Simulated assay, not measured.
Amino acid sequence: MVKYYNRKTKQYEIEKVAGDKYLQWTYSSPIGMKFLELLIKKKFFSKIYGSFCDSKRSVKKVHSFIKDFNINMTHSEKSAEEFESFNDFFTRKLKKEARPIDTDINSLISPGDGRLLAYENIDLNKLVQVKGFTYSLGKLINNLDISEKFSEGICLILRLCPTDYHRFHFIDDGVCEETIKITGDYYSVNPTALEQIPELFCRNKREWSVFHSKNFGDILHIEVGATCVGSIIQTYTPEVDIRKGDEKGYFKFGGSTTILFLEKNKVKIDKDIIEQSSKGYESRVLMGEKIGEKIKACDE
């Protein structure tokens, strides 16, 4: 059971997990764990399933998925009948009015839809995965020079479950460098898996880039793949001017994670998100929603 905090209602809710029984069996039973290591975490397993989700044969899954998880299709640019495959539906674009962007230059916004954890004053060698499990930023991106820049800064972990909008966006005006790709496994990023697999983010396929933002300093963007995520697609153009809310990329089918690292003394994360994170609860957020604000220098 995954419980998260709804910022709007100020209540805790239970997440309806796609493939919940499969996840529990895979990550909680000896046979499931053997099957995971031998097959499920491998690239070819996710690639095969991803190919099916790209095919026209998969389109029959769209209507049942919408019904089972109560997906609000009034937000989608396309109707349910217009999708040509399940991945076409899964990576759907939304109408602009469905995700209004907080345009205040001092507002830090969420890069996507999902469940958010936020940590301040971070120790780069003891980043929190879940209670009892930590990992290092240097190992996550395989670059100690870049990681040192974010010492004592902020770490934001945005988990996208399969029912979420799966495009991720830039949180400010600025310029983004080229994406660095790191090969890896395809473990689930669901809390059930995070509680069982040490250094899971450091084991999975991931991509990272440095975004030079106008208002919040340098930001490290990391996208982490997961089981059945056929691809991480970067749609932005490196080294060109970017506007707040512009699309950075998207994940194909499966739950996934976007991780952001911000420099020290640049941003103050909203109090409710920090409080819930300290209790071990994720906060439900939408792309464009304010999640923090700029720390203004004394001379501003």
Rank of each mutant, 00 (worst) to 15 (best):
H212Q: 12
D246R: 08
D218S: 12
E247F: 06
T227M: 14
D246W: 05
K244M: 06
I232W: 12
I242D: 00
Q234W: 12
I242A: 02
L220D: 10
H221K: 09
K244S: 05
H221Q: 11
H221G: 01
L220E: 08
D246H: 10
I242M: 03
E239V: 00
S213A: 08
E247K: 10
G225S: 13
I219Y: 10
D241A: 10
G245I: 03
D218C: 01
D218F: 00
Q234H: 15
C228F: 13
K214R: 07
I232Q: 10
S213M: 08
A226K: 10
Q234T: 08
R243T: 02
Q234F: 03
C228V: 15
I233K: 14
G230L: 04
I232V: 15
Q234N: 15
D246Q: 12
V224K: 09
A226L: 11
D246G: 04
G217V: 08
H221W: 13
E223H: 05
V229S: 02
K214F: 02
R243C: 01
I232C: 10
A226V: 11
S213W: 09
V240A: 00
L220Y: 01
I219R: 09
V240Q: 13
Y236W: 02
R243W: 00
K214P: 00
D241V: 00
V224F: 05
S231H: 13
D246M: 10
D218N: 15
G217I: 07
C228Y: 12
S231I: 01
K244R: 13
D241Q: 09
P238N: 08
E223R: 03
G245N: 03
N215H: 15
T235R: 11
G217C: 06
A226W: 11
G245A: 07
H212A: 02
N215Y: 05
T235G: 03
D246E: 15
G230Q: 12
P238E: 09
E223M: 05
E247A: 03
F216P: 02
I219W: 11
S213G: 08
I232Y: 12
R243H: 12
G217M: 05
E223N: 11
S231Y: 07
I219T: 03
G225E: 12
E239A: 10
H212P: 01
V229I: 13
H221Y: 15
D241I: 00
H221E: 09
V240K: 14
T237E: 14
G225A: 14
E223Q: 13
S213T: 15
R243N: 12
K244Q: 05
S213R: 06
N215W: 03
G245P: 01
G230T: 01
E247N: 07
R243V: 04
T235C: 07
D246T: 04
E247Q: 14
E247R: 09
G225P: 06
G230A: 14
L220P: 07
G230W: 05
T235M: 11
T235N: 07
T227D: 04
P238S: 07
V240R: 10
Y236C: 06
S231N: 14
I222H: 01
N215P: 08
I232T: 12
K214G: 04
N215R: 03
I232A: 08
T237M: 09
G217E: 05
I219N: 06
A226R: 10
I222F: 00
A226Y: 12
A226F: 12
E247S: 04
P238A: 06
I219L: 05
H221N: 14
